[in-house]
Amino acid sequence: MPSNAPLSPTHFVAPLDETPLVAVDKVQVAAKPSNLYLDAWRDMRRRPLFYVSGVIVLLVIVVALFPTLFTQLDPRACALSFSNQGPSAGHPLGYTKQGCDVYARIIFGTRTSLSVGIIVTLLVTVIGIIIGALSGYYGRWIDAVLSRIGDIFFAIPYILAAIVIMSVVAREARSILVLSLAIGIFAWPSTARVLRGQILSVKNSDFVMSAAALGVSHFRILLRHVLPNSIAPVIVITTIGLAGAIVAEATLSFLGIGLPPDVMSWGKDISQAQGDLRNNPMTLIYPSIALSVAVLSFILMGEVLRDALDPKARARR
């Protein structure tokens, strides 16, 4: 039927709207330019959870950087005469079995947890991005090889791998760095998989094709166009992964194979307090609370980021 044929009289045809079409089509010139990250930032600032988790994350960072701002006590100055004593003036959380100040040990243990978290996260993100980007963008045999390697690393749960590494490594070699390497070296496949999947869906976009048509090199396309447009889920998984690394450190320290004796750690304090669960449970509970709150804050931050960066997640709220 030709398009200018009269419509049947039984059909109702709405009259032209009062709004002229020109006004409908008008581009809002004054509107601020926006992109995924600006939108996300605006969305996050409207959410109370962002402020709650942000304040705790900031607090954890400040305590880790400047522990002496929060306590003047030496966490290593322990006296058995104070063993398992309750709270007193200047010692709000009481003493451990060895007579150390619980509060001071928690404050000084923060740095250990955060250091391991950051080193592991850096390692996992760098390896994950390189492997995920190469296999997602270049595909073919590069993808086949890298994905199989990822499968093998994924088959060994990273805490179990870290247990093997730390049980074999010489006692003198134990340190925050070695522990972080032991955790991170097996934790990267999830990051790589997430990025690979994201790149697969981005790399056929029109803007990638136009860049290629303009003669931009593949590596440059990957770096300037594909990666920035597929990195959002990696940011989310990295934040939540930082929480996972803190838990891994605490678990290994709890098992007694994490860190050298002079390094303070919440996991170690929890492990040492377990014998006194019946008569002095609070020496176990306080470091546990510190650990859980720190982990929770990073997980919350990851959730807020996910909701802000993923429009589908925004709709689910």
């Binding site: 929480a243 838990v247 605490a250 678990t251 709890f254 929890i270 546990s288 650990l291 859980s292 709150v293 982990v295 929770l296 997980i299």
Partner: peptide, 8 residues
């Protein structure tokens, strides 16, 4: 539950 480590 997700944030509290299993040994705690």
């Amino acid at each position: 539950f997700i944030s509290v480590p299993i040994f705690v």
